[in-house]
Design a binder for these strands. Structure first.
Lengths: 235, 235
DNA sequence: ATGTTTCCTTTATGCCTCTAAGCAAACTTA
DNA sequence: TAAGTTTGCTTAGAGGCATAAAGGAAACAT
């Protein structure tokens, strides 16, 4: 943190209050209630005043989303760090479980992050995208460390189209992972995150009321693909 | 179809035009552009006129969503019926592929159906819910027929919580399936539909540009769990 | 002490949903 | 066929939203 004058400090406080108010409205009344006007009204300000803090509704939404990403990231890192640095298996599983725990204890927030249909072109330097990448990296780094320390078996050959596509992504990661390992990582990611999204969006309510055991089953299926011992890190 | 007077016919035509206009706006300008006013304007009517056809914005959205479900259902049934009634394996795979094909050739529509956050309490007799159940049944019926004709191995024991939850759902289906089979069905469904949703919502754009081979890989992994021969029904 | 920056206000435009009142054409019925 | 009723639309209007513009007052810098 850079030292700031009083002016700057007050401004930061107001910014934080705006984001907190937006979050409260989201939780209490749903995403549609998070309007510039409503947030300002809650704070005892006039609507247009908020334009001194955010360029518009979309930027406010992006800032709040970034907050959620950061909070989720912190929670996951804390859960991960309850295990020693070398225990990549338990650390990864703890990270996954922390993600789901946060998601279901913060449904409106998680739904807001996930189910935001691509509203506009996403600039890669926006706070939202930066925080999103940090979130992604919690998994990626632990995964890469796991691969470093104890590589697991990967498919001998990949579908040519998949290989081609993943080559660019793998290179952009700069983690020295082989394409095949990245493919395994993404397969697991799709299963885990896909399940979570369906749960939070209520797409499975027709059959389930509590998806915790389904999530654990998913972890149990995924673990051996990474050479992990699920039973050794059961919940 | 019941015989109708001229009056009723004109009304049906206007209803159809409204839904078609709403769909066109969705495709051309995104979901936010589908407003009562915009639809009416496009049709050369005044806004409030639409309230003679739909009780409000939400009902219009529901009607359009039901249209999408019905169209998707028809496409899947047509693809399924290209295979003889007894060939449950190829019929199921064709149904899955038709679902994805429709989804990616109708991204706005599919995204609209899926990513509609639970906007209000859903009444189970609304057109949207009815059409949604028909869609669900295309998979369920073929799956039940497959089980009838050639039961596949199912897990010997289920997590007690999962078993308890699925008992109610299984009973409500009235298809005479065992709970274990329903569990296998839902596991496959979650993987397939979850992947599709992530694709359409752009959640995998960071790594993939074309998910067709990933989808096929998913089918290849799912098929043996249902006792199906993937290679015999490769694309 | 003066000028500038910052914060917030009110005002205004144009969009949205939805209600209400009213008119005219089309049907129904006596 | 004439009167009454239903239907399909209109305009008017209330209230909310995003956003732009203009202005006042306080805080800050010099």
């Amino acid at each position: 943190m850079v030292a700031q004058g009083r002016r700057a400090r007050v401004r930061q406080a107001t910014l934080a209050e705006i984001r907190a108010t937006a979050r409260r409205l989201l939780i209490e009344q749903g995403s549609a209630a998070v309007t510039i006007n409503a947030v300002a009204r809650e704070m005892g300000m006039s609507g247009p005043a908020l334009y001194h803090y955010f360029a518009g509704h979309e930027e406010l939404v992006g800032a709040v989303t970034a907050d959620f990403f950061r909070e989720l990231t912190e929670v996951m890192e804390a859960a991960r760090d309850e295990h020693p640095p070398g225990d990549h298996g338990p650390r990864l599983l703890a990270t996954c479980r922390a993600m789901r725990t946060w998601a279901i204890t913060h449904r409106p927030e998680f739904g807001w992050v996930f189910a935001s249909p691509i509203t506009s072109e996403r600039r890669p330097d926006s706070p939202r995208e930066l925080a999103g990448r940090d979130f992604e990296h919690v998994f990626l780094e632990e995964f890469a460390a796991l691969w470093e320390s104890r590589p697991f078996p990967v498919p001998a050959e990949l579908d040519p189209s998949i290989r081609r596509q993943l080559q660019a992504y793998t290179a952009s990661l700069g983690l020295g992972l082989p394409v095949e390992a990245v493919h395994v990582f993404l397969s697991c990611w799709i299963r885990l995150y896909g399940l979570l999204c369906m749960e939070v969006l209520g797409q499975l309510d027709f059959a389930y009321t509590d998806l915790e055991p389904v999530f654990e089953e998913c972890l149990r299926e995924i673990a051996p693909r990474l050479g992990l011992d699920y039973e050794a890190a059961a919940p």
